[in-house]
Amino acid sequence: MRGITFVRQFGEVVLAIAIAPLFAGWIAQCRAWMQNRSAPSLVQPYRMLRKLFQKDAALAKNASPLFRTTPYVLFGTMVLAAAIIPSLATDLPFARAADAIALIGLFATARVFVSLAAMDIGTAFGTLGARREMMIGFLAEPALLMVLFNAFLLSGSTALPSLVEFYNAHRFLIDPSLAFAAIAFVMVLLAENARIPIDNPTTHLELTMIHEAMLLEYSARHLALVEWASSLKLFNYACIGFALFIPWGIAAGGRNGSAATLLAIAALMGKLAVAGAALALIESLSAKLRIFRAPEYLATAFLLAVLGLLVHLQIGAR
């Protein structure tokens, strides 16, 4: 039995690694359609990765070992995060290794490493990007924590599997606080994953870059790993959102037959398709903010989450 759970855990992680670029490709496709452009193929991210893996890595002369290890560390943290987040089932062994707060810590580790690597070569854009990335990070983290606080208050647990179990047990519970938290979460998701309105993932203008500016010195397989980690991060955030707000379909409560697993996979695919389209819509409808509007944007997310908290406490107090 233990062996089977480990196999299922492995399967979940491999699935996450495999479809994360697909999710990114789907968003890009939706975005192109909504903006009346001809869309790239759905498998374009995979082609990109294959091309990058084949190329020779060009490395700056003064690059330190930190610079070369960082892509692997990034990839490692994101894969571990995918193992921890209950995207398909709740009774998997890695899920207990970390709760939601530790998950935030894991994302912070990735952020610190990529920022340090960006400063390693000592170019103007790299350090600029690192500074901006860390700024977005420290603004987004409290908002994300407040969102999670909302969920914890409902279920009394910071472990994501317990959260999902709780929602599945109280299927028709709709707490108004969650609506606020969900909006705040989407705002944080956009900021943390370098999407419009905070950052533009497809920009070619170095001065406005945040995330991309840090990757300018990376090439070939290193860049491929970093890009893959980025798409995994987006996938992970989406899965956290599903676990917090729409956990239906995730195999919970010890249901681990093949039917439940297939249902969970189908539900995940459906949710990803809808979420990807919604993200593309949001991105198409909004414009990129100036970098110094970012604090206002994230403060709004924070206040929304706090509002949710107060709503919950008011209702709970009554």
Binding site: T123, A124, F125, L216, E217
Partner: peptide, 24 residues
């Protein structure tokens, strides 16, 4: 894939005259 590496000057968007003063 492979483990080939080529050591070159830093790319920095093709700007060749960068100095340490241009760092943040």
């Amino acid at each position: 894939a492979h483990g080939r590496i080529r050591r070159t000057a830093a790319w920095d968007c093709g700007y060749p005259w960068q100095t340490s003063r241009m760092q943040d």
